[in-house]
Design a protein around this nucleic acid. Structure first.
Lengths: 195, 195
DNA sequence: ATAAATATAGCACGATCGTTCGATTTATCA
DNA sequence: TGATAAATCGAACGATCGTGCTATATTTAT
């Protein structure tokens, strides 16, 4: 890899870590430059605008998130085993690499009322995320792990909801009980649709 | 009411509208002063610090949210009818008064990684919110609308999750399908625990 | 090795922010 | 009415922000 691409990767990795630990909007060009250890204008030259920087951070986050949660799940067998691994990886993401929020939930909330290119990109990635989850549930049906009669879109919604509900609970109450409630809910979720 | 208290109420109402339309952190003393139509320093004198302002906005939001969602639900009969009205009021909140996000989800996400008095207050109000929802579900059991065997804490988690999941879906995809999926999910949720 | 291209730094700008302070208007009450 | 208190304002401060410009390293290609 060229030096330039390496540098950009370093910047984006640092940016993602910063997003996960301080939220999306608080990653300024100044603060990111400081974190990476270079000058404001030097870093600025990599992106040419704050908006383009945010777009690239989002794309990078999506790539890493996809690889860590869905990519790493491929070693499990199609259907329910893989779905379980996806959820495990997802929940784990809040703890690995110094922990931190789900960057897409943070971005979605922070940019909720700010239409523009960034918000569109967030919607795009969130939709892709939900689609990936939906596909994993489709596979559960295909592999005869889930009943054929289920509406997978609604089942996807339920799973996605308890995943982000879990995140909110984690930040709001004792970690142990948040985890316990989520695990119990997730188990019942599976039982509900299992053959 | 004294003139002073009226003024403060106007300020807090404006602030809440601003929060719902632009998010929590983007409500600056300068922007709020401009919105209310007074000078920066004039408004500042009401709070003496940005942190105290944010705390008062949070308390005001909690009061209004509680009254609009839970207060207004008291006209329905205890148990399931009331729970249904609560959810209806909650979903409606995203549309009334110019719409906008749930201020507590916004605040929770934005302050996720900023420990301090504001984050503590957010946790307090979120916990109260969840407790209120939990109590409404307890009433469903008490009135023999829900089965006695359910763990109401987990059921509360599931309901809270699809409510905020609905909000994310609303911002991410077509409003119509987001509403449809949520309604279908909510109906199944009730059927699942109903006697 | 030298020329061209790229990456980075330093500096300055206008904007916005939270906060302070002193002056001034407005409300309260003896 | 006149004195006291409270509310509001205008101006200024230091910080931080995004961005542009010019100069200097550093890498790449000939």
């Amino acid at each position: 890899m060229s030096t330039s691409a390496e540098r950009k990767l370093t910047i984006l990795d640092t940016a993602l870590a910063l997003v996960r630990n301080t939220g999306f909007e608080s990653v300024s060009i100044a603060s990111l430059a400081n974190e990476v250890g270079m000058s404001k204008s030097g870093l600025f030259a990599h992106f040419n605008s704050k908006e383009k920087m945010h777009l690239m951070i989002l794309d990078h986050a999506a790539e890493k998130f996809g690889a860590d949660i869905f990519g790493r799940s491929l070693k499990a067998k199609r259907g329910l085993p893989r779905l379980k691994l996806i959820v495990k990886n997802w929940v784990n993401w809040y703890k690995t690499d110094g922990g931190g929020t789900c960057p897409f939930l943070a971005a979605a909330v922070e940019y909720d009322s700010k239409p523009g290119a960034v918000k569109s990109r967030i919607q795009l990635h969130t939709n892709k995320l939900i689609s990936s989850l939906n596909y994993s549930i489709d596979l559960c049906v295909e592999e005869d792990h889930f009943r054929k009669s289920i509406e997978t879109k609604k089942v996807t919604f339920e799973l996605y909801s308890i995943i982000i509900g879990h995140l909110v609970y984690l930040r709001t109450m004792e970690v142990k009980s948040a985890n316990k409630i989520f695990q119990s809910s997730f188990n019942e979720f599976i039982e509900r649709y299992q053959i």
